[in-house]
Design a protein around this nucleic acid. Structure first.
Lengths: 228, 228
DNA sequence: ATTCTGTATATTGTCGACAATCTACAATAC
DNA sequence: GTATTGTAGATTGTCGACAATATACAGAAT
């Protein structure tokens, strides 16, 4: 039998979920923005039931914030949130690198990372920011994936989602296009040499730099002012 | 005005969520068990809407697994899942200890940990397993809380939930009641002495031991056999 | 004027009914 | 007998309507 592509049968909940998640990560839905269920459901062309289920999921993922009978808003991002985000991100990636260096099939992993890095260098020379960001994400995803730890990957998804959101919200000043790529190269080399300390130092520096840069030009529009 | 306790007004969703979560963690709902929405809703005395929202949340938390039009089951736990769990747990706690040692108010934190430890020693002498487990959890919670990192705490909740579940499912052989408590004492001492390497070594050993012990008498009833 | 009370409106929370889909098994064709 | 097709029952997915609650503002009491 000829194999045809399966017809699309994902539930409305899943489709709504994807739509909203993407919108939040894009920055299309901005932090603090209020989501009214009836409006949103009408706009998406679905009833409130699947929409609400999607909202509950985004709540756990930390992208939305709901207060009973008060409403749902896109979660605001304070400077502290960003610091925490990059701190946790560092923790996960350092852990991943340690695992990779200890792995038996390290060589194969390094090769995969190099392939990604090559792609990135190609994009870097062209200078397309969107593509660079995409490959950058692929690189960091790969680090985590190669641990083979499903639970870690699950946590990483939730974290990298927010990283992407933050990246989309900042003023995209693209000064150091190539710098990121070069960093990756050095990190791979340190891994290949099984130089744990150096690899950890480099990844910490790499992530720390990005976090600091992000914080430096963070304007307060997105801050979470509701503190008691 | 006299301050009275607020009347309970949590949503059905939240109450159902708590009920189910506790049942899963207790081991009352066993891995692999099938949850039928209509039955469960009737049993809990609510409609399917809030129940389904609770299920979606437990799905993201990794305690339930739902396949469209097929049903929801309590997530099974393979040996690999447990290994991953304890691996991630170690990552988080090592990170927390590093942060605590670097913290400015380290002394206050150490004092808090010592208080918890004292409580534990008291229980240990009486020999009540349930209480020991409770304080043990408090200790590890405290380690994470004292980082002051909200995102980390969020991830920790999801992880410690599963730890609790695994603990409840195993054959509760209570050989080394006091050993756990003594371990905590040593860890606190290493933190107080700002001896990072030693503290990290001890916590890794502590967690690793518990994980290994768990795996040693893990019977396959709870394994996830659905692999393709 | 100020404070309290009540009402109107908007929004979220919950419900029961219906639609879509899956599984199992019976019926049919060869 | 085997393979395909059709049907029945069970279960999840979705919908529209109603209930519960919060906010804002008008009106009354002091």
């Amino acid at each position: 039998m000829k194999s045809l592509r399966q017809v699309e049968t994902t539930s409305l909940r899943e489709r709504v979920l994807d739509t909203l998640r993407k919108a939040i990560i894009n920055g299309e839905l901005k932090p603090g923005e209020i989501l009214v269920e009836t409006e949103l459901a009408a706009q998406l062309g679905v009833s409130r039931a699947p929409l609400r289920e999607a909202i509950r999921i985004l709540n756990v993922e930390g992208l939305l914030q709901t207060v009973a009978y008060h409403g749902t808003t896109v979660k605001k991002l304070s400077r502290k949130d960003i610091e925490e985000l990059y701190s946790v991100r560092g923790m996960i990636e350092v852990f991943a690198i340690r695992q990779i260096i200890a792995a038996e099939d390290m060589d194969a992993i390094v090769q995969d990372l190099r392939d990604i890095h090559d792609t990135m260098m190609a994009f870097a020379k062209q200078g397309s920011m969107a593509d660079i960001n995409w490959v950058d994400r692929k690189f960091h995803d790969a680090l985590v994936k190669h641990t083979g730890n499903g639970l870690l990957m699950h946590l990483w998804e939730s974290v990298s989602l927010r990283v992407e959101q933050v990246m989309a919200l900042r003023n995209q000043k693209q000064g150091d296009l190539l710098q990121i790529a070069f960093n990756h190269g050095n990190i791979i080399d340190a891994i290949a040499a099984k130089n744990t300390d150096e690899a950890v130092r480099l990844i910490r520096e790499h992530i720390g730099t990005m976090g600091d840069e992000l914080l430096s030009d963070w304007h307060d529009d997105f801050e979470d002012t509701q503190r008691e």
